[in-house]
Design a protein around this nucleic acid. Structure first.
Lengths: 118, 118
DNA sequence: AAGTTTTTGCAACTGATTTGCATAAATTAT
DNA sequence: ATAATTTATGCAAATCAGTTGCAAAAACTT
């Protein structure tokens, strides 16, 4: 049920948002338990968003599970997906530093098209 | 005093770490108040690190104020600074999506040179 | 030194998330 | 289908990072 809600959304969702839409059916604790289960089983993945207006919240997405980045609009707080990862290969960085990069997380913030024209 | 501690560290520090080193002199609430003040006055800046072992914590750095990225080692939890930002220009992304990118945050995780050889 | 402003410690609070626990629902065995 | 066992749920309390109210302490003013 939670998985469906996430899969059917074009936006990453946070626990509160999911809970809002199914509060007659599920407890908030159950939502968190479900999200934890889904993430542990790689059905979804999550990232933290540090938003000056809305604070720190974890957002869940099923697309993100296959490496997806988003741009976050600081005005409307919606996410715009990015088709191709803007991060080039890290080979030169790895060679230079000896650090082996396993994961990367990218947060882009700005104003989406609509909000620029307001 | 807090600013000095951050400036003299080669690592971004979180509130707890700063507090640990000066707990005889300052209360944790005062550390947070100081950090808030410093960040508001652009002496330092901060980023969130979502670490599976240590949880979510905000790290403060004075270097970061002039746009600095780090790679976080998942074993020793130390940060390795990155000299040049690995993110290319966002112009093509902006042109394609209409989104205006104002800020970007990049978290790279992996194993630092030392921890790979353990 | 008395009065005013700022900073501090401490404790209580917040908000997101987690957990204990007893109950309810689902699953399996009888 | 029915008792026994496992799993999932709701609810409330706990947790954890971070914030805030408030009275006392320190720093400034005059």
């Amino acid at each position: 049920m939670i998985l469906e809600k996430i899969q059917n959304s074009d936006q990453p969702l946070c626990a509160q948002q999911i809970y809002e839409e199914m509060k007659e059916a599920l407890d908030l604790a159950t939502v968190y338990r479900g999200l934890k289960y889904l993430e542990e089983n790689s059905e979804i993945s999550s990232f933290l968003l540090d938003c000056s207006e809305r604070g720190v919240e974890r957002y869940y997405s099923s697309f993100f599970a296959h490496h997806k980045h988003y741009m976050h609009c600081m005005a409307c707080h919606r996410f715009t997906p990015i088709d191709t990862c803007p991060l080039g290969g890290f080979e030169s960085l790895e060679k230079k530093t000896g650090f082996r990069i396993d994961e990367h997380f990218l947060t882009l913030k700005g104003l989406c098209k609509k909000c620029q024209n307001k």
